[in-house]
């Protein structure tokens, strides 16, 4: 039994370990978890807010159809954030999981990449569940929506890497409230509920700089079948954003674990 060195720094092994932890829980609980929230949101939008707003300028589809892709993008983002945020922090600070990981052939790069991959995988599961709900509610407009979930992997990548970087600087649970301080307004402003055109010009520019804006535009464009070169721009934004943060996370976690 000669140990062989795992490839890619062992990133896939970190994913495997995380899968293992969830193996105990029945798989349908995980699915239920990921589907329950979207159902609630869609209901609240469809019955409640949709009833209030009536016609939205710049939106030619039923309101629920317009909002659903934004909720899909946000749900996928949140799944990735959960895993790379507080969950990773608990493993770092309380279980000292990463400390015992890096004395094996798994490297810091492997650990960081693995956690981001895992966040993407969770985003994928959530996205798939959400898509099923959107279909069940009859909110599908275009077959291109099938590509919205794979595209959402970029969302998991971008936000997973950013939140893992943040976790590397966290001093205690309470620091996550600062993350919430960024996330909540971003959720509200990033064209989740209405097009960016309702804002005055300078605010529009600000909104267009937000990563969630690009996440939502990408998913919405595919879901509504409005294809165009701007989607590539959205995707490129997320890739660059994620890559920068992945590099940063790698450096920070390297200092944390191997100084």
């Amino acid at each position: 039994m000669i140990p062989t060195l795992p490839r890619a720094g062992g990133a896939h092994l970190v994913v495997l370990r995380n899968l293992w932890v969830h193996k105990g829980g029945s798989p349908w609980t995980m699915a239920l978890f990921s589907i329950f929230e979207p159902i609630l949101y869609l209901l609240a939008i469809g019955v409640g807010i949709g009833g209030l707003v009536g016609d939205v300028p710049g939106v030619e589809v039923p309101y629920a159809v317009y909002v659903a892709p934004a909720l899909l993008a946000t749900a996928m983002m949140n799944s990735a954030l959960e895993e790379t945020g507080q969950s990773a922090y608990a493993k770092l600070a309380f279980d000292r999981f990463y400390h015992s990981l890096i004395v094996t052939p798994v490297t810091v790069t492997g650990a960081v990449t693995g956690e981001v991959l895992w966040g993407m995988l969770r985003a994928l599961i959530t996205g798939t569940g959400f898509l099923a709900v959107i279909a069940a509610f009859g909110l599908v407009q275009s077959p291109w929506i099938l590509l919205a979930v794979p595209a959402g992997l970029l969302i998991g990548f971008a936000f997973g890497a950013a939140s893992l970087t943040f976790t590397g600087y966290v001093r205690g649970w309470h620091d996550y409230q600062y993350m919430q301080l960024i996330m909540l307004p971003m959720f509200l402003f990033a064209t989740t509920f209405y097009p960016v055109t309702v804002y005055p010009e300078p605010v529009q520019l600000l909104v267009e700089a937000l990563p969630l804006y690009h996440a939502i535009e990408l998913v919405r464009g595919l879901a509504l079948g409005r294809l165009g070169p701007s989607l590539l721009l959205n995707a490129a934004y997320l890739i660059v954003f994620g890559t920068l943060f992945l590099t940063w996370a790698r450096r920070r976690w390297g200092r944390l674990l191997t100084s």
């Binding site: 307004p185 402003f189 509920f193 209405y194 309702v198």
Partner: peptide, 12 residues
Amino acid sequence: LFLLAIGAGLGT
């Protein structure tokens, strides 16, 4: 921020 977003967006 919440009230700002709702006031400027959904509120209109």
